[in-house]
Computed example of a mutant assay.
Amino acid sequence: MEDLSQYPLELPESDKPMVRFQNVTKRYGALTVLDDLNLDIAEGEMVSIIGPSGSGKTTVLRMLMLERIQGGVIYVDGKPLTHMQQRGRLVQASEKYLRQAREPVGMCFQHFNLFPHMTALQNCMEGPVQVLGMSKKNARERSEELLELVGLIDKKDQHPSRLSGGQQQRVAIARALAMRPKVLLLDEVTSALDPEVIGEVTEVIKGLVSAHNLTIMMVTHQMGFAREISDRVCFFFGGKIEEQGAPADLFDNPQRERTQQFLSAVKSAD
């Protein structure tokens, strides 16, 4: 069993990123998918994660929302997410603790995952009412504000089947934001979209960052999207961060051979 005494019970204000992965390891059986990952995401930062299939990039998001880890600690807003305090030390988090600790984190999936029998407005209202215990009146007001923000207030009474892919993705983003997350995770949110509607989703995400001071972690295969929208890009390879930096630096002047090979292969595929 891992010695957790090296990890603080909470991060001090002087050293408190919005998200911290500290020595995080994730395994599936004998396969190590994330290997001793250390990564800080500042409040309000937009970080894109790129890399070949199997490099561990989507697993980074899943550790925050869906799965447990086998080593290290993840902190969100200074508090441990994967562990909880017990008698002055950190122990593996209970399911109840995990549900509460994950409340500041929202996630948008590649294939939207909207409820097909609900309208756009009802999709956005469901979480605040059922999970946060918000009144339907307040949930409706919040949801309408967010649908306005993503440019879809005129579609609020439409079911997902009546919306385009880009519109469905914008509803999914509004639904995630209705839970008032501090951290928004975007998993390949443009990969199922036609190229002409990627721009509209890009503009929506840019607007959300400035309007809500959101911290965003995004996994994407689309390098142009990552370049345009990110403050920082992390290239993953073999469960580790091979290289990271500002988009212009990483895309135009990659320092590591594996990064160069990956970007060259992506450019050739385009």
Rank of each mutant, 00 (worst) to 15 (best):
S14P: 00
R99C: 03
F21D: 01
S48I: 08
D36H: 14
M218C: 15
E228P: 00
N23E: 11
F237S: 13
R27V: 04
R162E: 15
G199N: 06
L146D: 07
F262T: 07
M118K: 15
P12Y: 11
F21H: 01
A120E: 00
L34G: 07
E200F: 00
T190Y: 06
Q261V: 06
L64A: 07
L208Y: 02
A139N: 13
E13S: 10
H212L: 15
R180Q: 15
S210I: 01
F109C: 02
P12M: 11
R232D: 03
G238E: 13
L81R: 05
P195I: 05
A139Q: 13
N123D: 01
M218V: 13
E95F: 10
M63A: 13
E188R: 02
M63V: 14
S53Q: 10
M1S: 11
R175S: 09
V60K: 03
R27A: 13
G78N: 09
E10R: 13
I50H: 04
I153F: 01
E45R: 11
V105L: 06
S191D: 06
R20G: 01
S53R: 13
E188L: 03
K240T: 15
E257F: 00
I153P: 00
M46H: 13
M179W: 04
D194S: 02
I229P: 08
G56S: 11
V60H: 04
Q260G: 05
I205H: 04
L98W: 07
E145A: 15
A174W: 11
P128Q: 05
A226C: 05
V60G: 05
V19Y: 01
V201M: 01
D270R: 14
P52T: 07
E2D: 12
T32D: 06
A248F: 07
S48W: 05
H83K: 11
L184W: 06
E242I: 10
A172T: 11
R232Q: 12
T220C: 03
T119P: 00
Q22S: 13
S264W: 02
L193K: 00
L185D: 05
R27W: 01
R102G: 06
F225V: 12
T25S: 10
I198L: 00
